[in-house]
Each structure stands twice: as C-alpha cells, then as structure tokens.
Amino acid sequence: MFAREEDVLEAAAGWRREGRGVALATVVETWGSAPRPVGSHLAVDEEGNFLGSVSGGCVEGAVVTEAAEVIADGQARMLEFGVADATAWEVGLSCGGRISVYVEKVA
C-alpha cells in the first residue's frame, strides 16, 4: 500500500502499542537534489519491518540497520548520507544530494 506521512506516524504508534521495539527516522536536513523533503519519516520495528521513506530507496537499508541499534540502546543518532560523506557510510545517494537523518527510539 502507498503510505502517506501520517500513516507512518500512526504505524509507529500502533507497533509500539503492540509491544514492538520501534524507531522513527526523520529527514532533518537536505543539501542539493535530495529525493525526500525535510520532515519525511521512516518507521522501523525491531524486526526490520519499515514504512515510509527518507531517500526514495537509496539509504533505507542503512537506516533500518542503524535503527536496530537505536532500539537496542535507546540513544538517538544523527546519520549523514551523501557523496561528500563517503567516509562515514558505505552507502550514498545516486542523485548527488546529501541528507541528515535523525533516528530516535519510540519509548
């Protein structure tokens, strides 16, 4: 199903109410031709199920992996993706843009 931003936040709350570990990723900054606008959300559960997108598919895998860590230790993290930040992350954005993604646990 095609998910809207509000569906993502509803899903995050619903999953948490069911007792699942949940993290919420939010695009907080973009530079250049980033594929998703600031404020876009990705909800991730402890098993790696996710809804929404932060990049149109380029870096979701890395965000989901990092979300598992956030769910485990409860510490929010700021992730940076993009051509200029290849040292920090193996993945990049094919569009040449850069994005910062804030990942927090839904407690």
Binding site: E6, L9, A12, A13, L24, V106
Partner: peptide
Amino acid sequence: MELALLERLNAERA
C-alpha cells in the same frame, strides 16, 4: 520520543 507524545501528535493531526 515517548509513545504518549507521538499519540498526541497523531491525535492533533486527526
């Protein structure tokens, strides 16, 4: 984010 806060956010939007 606390679940209660997320639920308030969702309720305001609804």
